[in-house]
Design a protein around this nucleic acid. Structure first.
Lengths: 136, 136, 136, 136
DNA sequence: GTGGTCTAGACCACC
DNA sequence: GTGGTCTAGACCACT
C-alpha cells in the first residue's frame, strides 16, 4: 500500500496518515489480520518522525481498527472492524453538517450532493466478489 | 439568530462561529443584505474576544459570503452567494472523502449514508413556502 | 463630471473622491478656474457625509489643486497646477516601487509594464488640440 | 536580508513588511525554497509584535509567495512564483491609475514616467550574470 | 522550537 | 460607533 503525504498541507501529518490507513482498510487493500509496517520502518520509509507514525497508530488502535502487540507488531484488527455506533454516527453528523450547510449556501442541490457521495463511496468501496473472505 | 459555541471542543472557536453563520445563511435565517452584529457586540454577546469574531468574519469575507464596510459594519453579501466552482467542489471532496472511507470501514451502506445526508440537508434547507419571496 | 464611488471597496471614500477629481483635472474635464460643486451639494448628490467631501476638498487644497473661497465656493486652481517637485516625485517613487517589485516577482517584463503605463496615461491624457488654452 | 520599517509612517507595519519581503524575492535576495526567519525571531529582531509579522506572512501565503509549515517554519515558495493573471493585472491597474493621473496633472510627461519606472525596475531586478544559475 | 489560537486592552481612521 | 491595527502575554498542537 502506498502512502501519499502532502507536507505542504495544513492537515497534520498524523491525520493524513490515519486517513490513508483507514481508506486502505475500507477499500480492502489492507485486510483484517494483515500486518502493518513497524513504527520505525514506516517512519523511515516515508521520511517522517517516529512520534508522528506512533500517534497515527495510537489513534487507530483507540478506534479498535488495529492491534499493537509488543512482539508481533502492528496488525489490522483480525476480528474485523467495529460497527457504527451512536457515538460514531454523532461524530460523523457533526463533521458532515457544516459541509452540507456550505454546499446548500452555494446552491448545490441534494441530488448533486448524493451523486458526489455515491461517486466517492464507489471509488473507495472494494469490489464485492462473493467469495473474497479467504485468508491471504 | 442564536450562536452556540462549545468552548471545550478542539474545533477553533472562530471555525465554529464561521460554520454557524454559514448555516444561518444556508437556512435562510440570515438573508442577503441583512446586517450582522458588529465585531464588538457579537464578541461581548457570546463572551469571546473581538479578534476571534473578527477572524471568523474575515474568513467569511474571503469567501465572499459577507461584506465588511469600515463604518457601516457587516452585512450578508447582498448580491447573493457565489456558486460552487471547481475549487469549492475539490475542497468539499477532500474533506468528505475520509468521512466516507471511515463509514465504509464500519459497514455503513451507501444507502444509509445518503439517508443521513438527505436528513441533514433537509434539516438545514429553508422551507420553500410558495409566497416567501417578497421583500420583508 | 460623473463621480463613481464603490461603497464596498476598502479604499476610503474620501480617497476615491480625491482620486476622481484629480483624474478629472488631469483629463481636462475639469479646467483651471472651473467651479466645483459646494461641499453640501456634492455630498447630497452622491449621498455621502459632508465631512467626507470636506476631507477630500481639504486634501486637494493642501496640494494646491483647488482653491476654497468662503464666498465664491470651490474652484480648480485658476493659475494651473503646481509642477512636480522633489517631494512629489519621492512620494510617487515610494508608492510605485512596491507595485513594480510585485510585478517583477510575477514575471512581468519591463516592456509590459511600460505598455501598461502608456495605455493608462493615454486613456487619461486629454487630446492635445494645439490651441486649447483659451479660457472657457 | 535587511528589513527597514518606518514606525511613523501611516502605512501599516505589516504592509511595509510584506512589501519588503516581496522586493526581496523579486530582487533575488530571497530565493525559492529559502527559509525565512520564524515569526517570533523576526518579530523580536525588528522589535515588533509576533502577530504583526504573522499577518504579513499570512498575506504572502495567501498570494502563494511563501509556504508556511506548522513545524518547519516559513519558506519562499519552492516552485517559484505564480504568474501574473487577470486578477493581478486588474489590481495593479487600479492601484497605478491614480498615481499616473496625478503625475499627468502635475505635468509629468509619459517619457519621464517611463524613465522612472525603468529606473526602479532595474534597481530591483536581479542582475542576470550569465553564470548565476548554479545552486549555492 | 515552530506556528495556531485566544485573550485583554489600546489607539486610530472613517463617517 | 464601526472596523483596522498593534501590543503583550498565554497555552496548545505538532514534529
Amino acid at each position: 500500500m502506498i502512502i501519499e503525504l502532502d507536507m505542504q498541507s495544513d492537515i497534520p501529518i498524523y491525520t493524513q496518515l490515519t486517513n490513508q490507513i483507514i481508506e486502505g482498510i475500507a477499500s480492502g487493500s489492507l485486510k483484517p489480520g494483515e500486518a502493518l509496517p513497524s513504527v520505525r520502518s514506516l517512519a523511515s520509509d516515508i521520511g517522517i518522525n517516529l512520534h508522528t507514525v506512533n500517534k497515527a497508530y495510537q489513534l487507530l488502535k483507540q478506534e479498535d481498527y488495529i492491534h499493537i502487540h509488543r512482539q508481533k507488531g502492528v496488525v489490522v484488527n483480525p476480528n474485523g472492524m467495529p460497527e457504527a455506533n451512536k457515538e460514531f454516527s454523532d461524530k460523523q453528523n457533526a463533521q458532515i453538517r457544516p459541509l452540507i450547510a456550505e454546499a446548500i449556501l452555494r446552491g448545490v442541490t441534494l441530488e448533486e450532493m448524493k451523486e458526489m457521495m455515491e461517486r466517492i463511496y464507489q471509488e473507495i468501496e472494494p469490489p464485492v466478489n462473493k467469495a473474497d473472505n479467504k485468508k491471504e
